[in-house]
């Protein structure tokens, strides 16, 4: 029951922060696996608090539990914006342990990772329902953004009337196409960046302050 109790506590905490105006907005970083969500979360956390949110990896589903970094103060034009960043597991409709076997993983570990990733997606979807005040949607600009998962998630976010900032990540890659993302979701502003290289982070922070401040 310990887990349940902890969970209940964290949910009540979440609920209490939702209803208090002074508390920082809780911003969920969502997107498909391997879009660079954790790299971005770490970049933001390191830039403004000095430490990281969690480990990054090329292996999909490295983040299998939502991780939070609280009270990240971002300064823009002399104004301070305080947010809580929630780095969520990559959302997908299929998780298969055999995918991890290619990354030199034993079967037992791969199966466990797969199970945890699935639980992580369930958690991320649940958080989206109740526990976030805004969304940073991270897409890998080197891949096709027209997917069922992206369309469905952005649709859900819109139906919740949550402010959403779409980030076209990985612009350092040759195959990157920011325009493809702009075309896919023209109703939202798309900001290009490379979270890994730190490219265009100034504009990202400007927009975070504008959207979630």
């Amino acid at each position: 029951m310990g887990l349940l109790t902890n969970l209940k506590d964290s949910i009540s905490r979440a609920a209490s922060t939702l209803f208090s105006e002074e508390d920082p907005k809780r911003i969920g970083i969502y997107g498909p696996p391997n879009a660079g969500k954790t790299t971005l979360a770490n970049r933001i956390a390191r830039d403004w608090t000095g430490d990281a949110v969690g480990p990054e990896s090329h292996v999909p589903h490295e983040t299998r539990r939502a991780r939070r970094k609280e009270n990240v103060e971002i300064e823009r034009d002399g104004k301070k914006v305080t947010i809580d960043i929630v780095d969520t597991p990559g959302v997908t409709t299929k998780v298969d342990y055999t995918e991890f076997l290619e990354h030199d993983m034993e079967k037992d570990d791969a199966v466990r990772r797969s199970r945890e990733a699935t639980e992580g997606v369930a958690e991320a979807m649940h958080w989206l329902r109740e526990d976030v005040d805004g969304v940073i949607y991270v897409l890998d600009s080197a891949t096709d953004p027209f997917t069922q998962v992206n369309t469905m998630l952005i649709g859900i976010i819109e139906s919740q009337d949550l402010p959403v900032l779409i980030l076209a990540n990985k612009i350092d890659l040759e195959e990157s196409s920011v325009q493809r993302i702009r075309n896919a979701y023209p109703q939202h502003e798309t900001i290009p960046l490379s979270a890994l290289e730190g490219d265009n982070m100034d504009e990202v922070y400007d927009k975070i302050a504008e959207y979630f401040g």
Binding site: L3, L4, L7, V91, T92, T93, K94, V95, D96, Y97, T98, K107, A110, V111, S114, R115, T118, E119, V121, A122, E123, M125, H126, L128, R129, V149, M152, L153, I156
Partner: peptide
């Protein structure tokens, strides 16, 4: 919400996961 094909292989219905009141915390 979550279909277990076999241990380690899952299919997820995102709309269902989003819509449901209960929160699946462990498989």
């Amino acid at each position: 919400s979550i279909k277990v094909l076999e241990p380690g292989q899952y299919e997820l219905n995102l709309m269902e996961l989003y819509d449901r009141e209960e929160y699946i915390i462990a498989l």
